[in-house]
Simulated scan of single mutants.
Amino acid sequence: MQYRNGQRLPPDAVGVPARLSVNPRARRLSIRIDGRAGEAVLVAPSERGLAQAVAFARTKADWMRQRLAERPDSAPLEPGAVVPLYGRPTRLVSTGGAGAARLIDGPDGPFIQSGGEGEAFSRRVQNLFRRLARQVLLERTEQHLRTLGQRPVTVSIADTRSRWGSCSPHNRTIRYSWRVIMAPPAVADYLAAHEVAHLVHADHSPAYWSVVQRLVGDHRPFRKWLRDNGPALHAVGR
């Protein structure tokens, strides 16, 4: 069978719903779980390697089913909910009316106050998260660019399905997931360093990781934090 990049496989092909992905930066076959989409992503360095990725995934069917079953429940952005922001639990409070969402430091801790009802309330809170993410990530990106003596880049904020960020060195653009603003500030700083370092090395070679280490020190705790807590962040607002 001929497989192609982006192709979706039915559950009976590898044991779970799956999507094929070609990543030229990948150094080996791998599987990651896209909790938001409810599927496994089978990654190969080239389209020719996708058949091997499918065969490899068939040997990991039990593991993939277990990981998908462990996905956290959705966490809607609604009044009364508590969601993370900068790594701290933050309450969502409705004010009625149509006011924009605002972050307030109250005597009992931070909370977000917003107008709107239903989807309108959720959208206002998410817009606030996007604004905060852009502010923080732009500042950290510029700092890491200065450290490496790199020229400015164009930064955009998106809601990606699984990746926390991406860098396109050829057109000097970096895209971040707004959801990283829910993580502790040091994790967001690591993400900015991770993407800026790709302007120096496009791969994940030892030379690349040495650049990341120059920017943030030991990066392993931050990577582990995202692996352990990422699914919960992707469940927010679902």
Rank of each mutant, 00 (worst) to 15 (best):
105 D>G: 10
229 N>P: 03
139 E>F: 15
8 R>G: 12
159 D>G: 13
136 V>H: 10
177 S>F: 11
37 A>M: 10
138 L>F: 14
8 R>M: 12
63 W>Q: 04
155 V>I: 11
72 P>N: 05
230 G>C: 05
166 S>K: 08
37 A>N: 08
145 L>E: 00
191 L>K: 07
106 G>H: 10
75 A>H: 14
20 L>G: 04
181 I>R: 00
95 T>V: 15
12 D>E: 12
16 V>H: 02
53 A>E: 00
119 E>Y: 14
22 V>P: 04
3 Y>E: 01
230 G>L: 07
214 R>G: 11
113 Q>W: 13
204 H>A: 05
63 W>Y: 06
149 G>E: 03
70 E>R: 06
56 F>P: 05
100 A>I: 12
43 V>G: 05
210 S>K: 13
229 N>M: 07
207 A>Q: 08
161 R>K: 15
156 S>V: 15
20 L>F: 09
2 Q>C: 06
149 G>P: 07
58 R>G: 10
223 R>I: 11
48 R>Q: 07
4 R>N: 05
87 G>A: 08
95 T>S: 15
23 N>D: 12
184 P>E: 05
213 Q>F: 06
203 D>R: 12
99 G>E: 11
195 E>V: 07
46 S>T: 15
106 G>Y: 03
164 W>N: 06
201 H>W: 10
77 L>E: 02
105 D>C: 08
182 M>S: 08
157 I>D: 00
181 I>H: 04
5 N>G: 13
155 V>Y: 04
73 D>F: 14
61 A>S: 09
20 L>C: 06
218 D>I: 13
21 S>A: 13
